[in-house]
Design a protein around this nucleic acid. Structure first.
Lengths: 203, 203
DNA sequence: GTCTATAACCTGATAGAC
DNA sequence: GTCTATCAGGTTATAGAC
């Protein structure tokens, strides 16, 4: 546990950033007050501006981190020239479900803030070109030249990410407690790769 | 066109509600100022409070409408005892893609506000019981008794709704202009029912 | 670097004239 | 019903002492 520093050990700057992650994630940009962040960090409001100049600058740092966390992880998998198409689908599924089980609020945060306060941040991530030129894209194109590969990417991400975006709704509809929800997501790790495989074979 | 009144013809109360729909939908609850709504409605700020007492009351009216619009439409389809499972899947797909093409920002609005300001509103919609006792649920259970029917519901909704939730990301990744995006969604109306069918057959 | 105090502005809501 | 004016409180950001 050498990497897991307790809050008291962190530098002031890092304490503020950590508090900002927590509060922005929970409330979104607009509903967050800098006072909330200062309180969460256990420091004074003035220090926040001393280190980060403004609420918006601090938000952009957090937002970039979260976008990276949501979309950065897939790069290593999709660009690997040594894995089969089927293996990539399996790895993506497991990666996303595990990562989102640890960070269930990540996608709704990123996707909703992207629309409200950060559409200009999309261009910062070169994820578009990476994906278009990836091994996965080419493999999909070879397998199903009749269908835009983007459809399959959407399906993989939709199958894994959507349940977390709609989590409150799904829990209500299915009468699921948090443990039930996690169990279902665990089931999906096996089901989704099978489903995507069958999609690829369906003419 | 007898139902389509121009803005000037509406009652003041309806003008304010219409403006509230527009502004809340665009900015979300927290980022919306009652002054924005008043201006959009072409009336004075005081009138908003005269008709609706508070920002929150007005928001709840809009939010209930939007939840109804997002989830109410599926009730008629899933409870129909006279359509086959396959027909229901086709109808749900077409219904959602058409409706969301007209209202692309609806799902991200509802799902993100649900988390921030309206989790207590979920219970207002009896969608949970309706779905659990629906013909669709029973048909899924008969077809695949080995898999929780909720998985398939999530897949149908995920395939149709997720692309709209992630729209800015998808457009950036795929280098799509709005017309391209619509074309892809149109393609999905044919593809998704095929995919779900093949899922149901995949052991 | 860290704090207190406060400036400068914004926001939801209401009072009161018409 | 509709308006103008304004209140009371909140919000970001900074000045200035330590």
């Amino acid at each position: 546990m050498i990497n897991k520093k307790s809050t008291e050990d962190l530098s002031t700057e890092e304490k503020i950033k950590e508090a900002a992650r927590t509060v922005f994630m929970k409330k979104g940009y607009s509903a967050t007050r800098t006072r909330d962040i200062a309180e969460e960090a256990g420091i004074n409001l003035a220090l926040l501006n001393y280190y980060f100049r403004s609420k918006e600058k601090l938000f952009e740092i957090v937002m970039m981190e979260k976008m990276q966390k949501l979309f950065g992880g897939l790069v290593g998998i999709v660009t690997d020239n040594d894995t089969t198409l089927e293996k990539k689908i399996e790895l993506l599924t497991i990666y996303y479900i595990d990562m989102l089980t640890q960070n269930p609020d990540l996608p709704i945060f990123v996707l909703s803030e992207l629309r409200n306060n950060g559409e200009h941040l999309i261009k910062s991530l070169p994820i578009g070109n990476v994906l278009q030129q990836s091994a996965l894209f080419k493999q999909l194109q070879v397998n199903r030249p009749d269908i835009n590969p983007l459809h399959f990417i959407i399906n993989i991400l939709g199958s894994t990410i959507f349940p977390f975006v709609a989590k409150p709704m799904i829990q209500a509809v299915g009468n699921l407690n948090p443990k039930d929800f996690e169990t279902m997501m665990e089931e999906r790790k096996k089901l989704i790769p099978r489903w995507i495989r069958s999609m690829l074979q369906t003419k």
